[in-house]
Simulated scan of single mutants.
Amino acid sequence: MENITVMAILLRLMNDSISNKTQFSIARGILKNFRQIPQISIYDLADLCFVSPASISRFVKSLGFSSFSEFKKECEGYISIDVDYSSNVLKAKGADILPLFERYTVSAKENLDYNLQNIDMDQIEKISDWIYKADDVVYLGLEFATILGQHYQKKMAECNKYIHLPWNFEQQREIIGDFSENSVAIIASLEGGYFYRSSEIIRMLKNKGSKVIAITMEHNSKLLRDADEIILCNKNNSETEGRLSLLHVIELLIMYYFINYK
């Protein structure tokens, strides 16, 4: 469960399991009552989901949890949307919204300008050549970065280059375990969180001899010492505006690859 939150797992089940009525019902019931999960029993949840306690037990084990207690603990530790925003947003009233929108937009524009000002065309050429010649390329990230990875994967496939996009630790370990030395890992992590949470994957990549490309704003962090190339991305991220600049960098990489390797 290291690289994907319980909320993301449940939402994916809701999207993928409509044909499995029991899984769909349990996932929907948990999401509707998510904040209550740490305080209720397996019997209470079973009633809320209109299934048996045994079905709840099987469900959480299918997600990789050893017990309902472990699942509850994971739900309790889930970090909510509040952490996305500064105190300006958390304390905002109706009259504050438009000025906040304006500041957000200005900050987002500054990020895009920052990306363009810091772009190193020799670096982009080198990275694109690595990707073109690699036997395998994997895109890694947490949460939103992985969602952007779906877009990157699709567009690169249209350029005749397949990109691995594993969603969780087990898939990442399995895919990287089969890599040759001629492989590339693209790690999108604005604040370096992936490097902190996935040290085993980083070690595997280095042991394989894979080239590691980091897209991040934390370019001075010791966490990034194993990156072969660091693409600077983002100046501000107080209100999640960094998400837009991460997409900006990914679009630039796609565009360069399309022009030179289509």
Rank of each mutant, 00 (worst) to 15 (best):
A227N: 09
F195H: 09
G64C: 09
S221M: 06
K222E: 13
I201D: 06
K133D: 15
V51G: 03
Q150N: 13
D228T: 04
F24M: 01
I231R: 02
V184N: 03
Y257N: 02
D44F: 03
E218S: 15
H164L: 14
S183L: 11
I259P: 01
I163Q: 04
I30N: 06
I213M: 02
A185W: 11
F68P: 03
N160K: 10
W130H: 05
A8S: 14
F24V: 03
M255I: 07
L247G: 02
D135N: 15
Q150C: 11
A145S: 15
C159T: 01
K211N: 03
Q150M: 12
S55C: 10
L165E: 03
G192C: 07
Y104K: 15
F101T: 06
L246G: 02
S62R: 12
Q123P: 10
V6R: 06
A54K: 04
K206F: 12
T240D: 01
F71V: 06
R243C: 07
R58I: 08
N160V: 01
A145I: 06
E239F: 01
S19I: 09
K61P: 06
D122K: 05
E110W: 01
E251Y: 11
I131G: 01
A227L: 05
L205V: 08
V6F: 13
I131F: 02
L13E: 04
P99F: 15
M7Q: 05
P99N: 15
I18N: 06
Y139D: 08
S107E: 10
G193P: 00
F34A: 10
H151C: 04
L45H: 08
E102Q: 04
V184T: 09
K21F: 03
D44P: 04
L11F: 13
G77Y: 05
T216P: 03
V184H: 05
I42V: 09
S189L: 06
E158T: 03
E181Y: 09
L205P: 01
M255Q: 13
R173S: 08
S67R: 00
N118I: 08
L165N: 04
H219R: 12
G192Q: 10
S221W: 11
S180K: 10
E200D: 15
S80K: 14
M255P: 00
S183K: 11
F258V: 00
P166Y: 11
L165I: 06
S198E: 11
L246V: 06
I230F: 07
D96Q: 13
L45Y: 10
I18M: 05
I201N: 11
N234M: 05
S198W: 09
M14W: 08
E241D: 02
S19L: 12
I124C: 11
Y194F: 13
T22W: 02
Q171E: 15
I40E: 10
Y85M: 07
K208L: 05
V212F: 10
K133H: 14
K126M: 09
E170F: 09
K93H: 14
N20L: 07
N237K: 00
V212I: 15
I230M: 12
V89H: 05
P99C: 15
N111I: 08
P166A: 06
A227W: 07
I250E: 09
L232I: 15
G242Y: 04
K91H: 14
I176R: 10
D178S: 13
R12M: 04
L45I: 10
V106K: 13
C49G: 04
I9S: 03
S57M: 03
S210E: 01
L148N: 02
G177Y: 01
Y139Q: 08
S87D: 15
N182R: 14
Y162F: 09
S183Y: 08
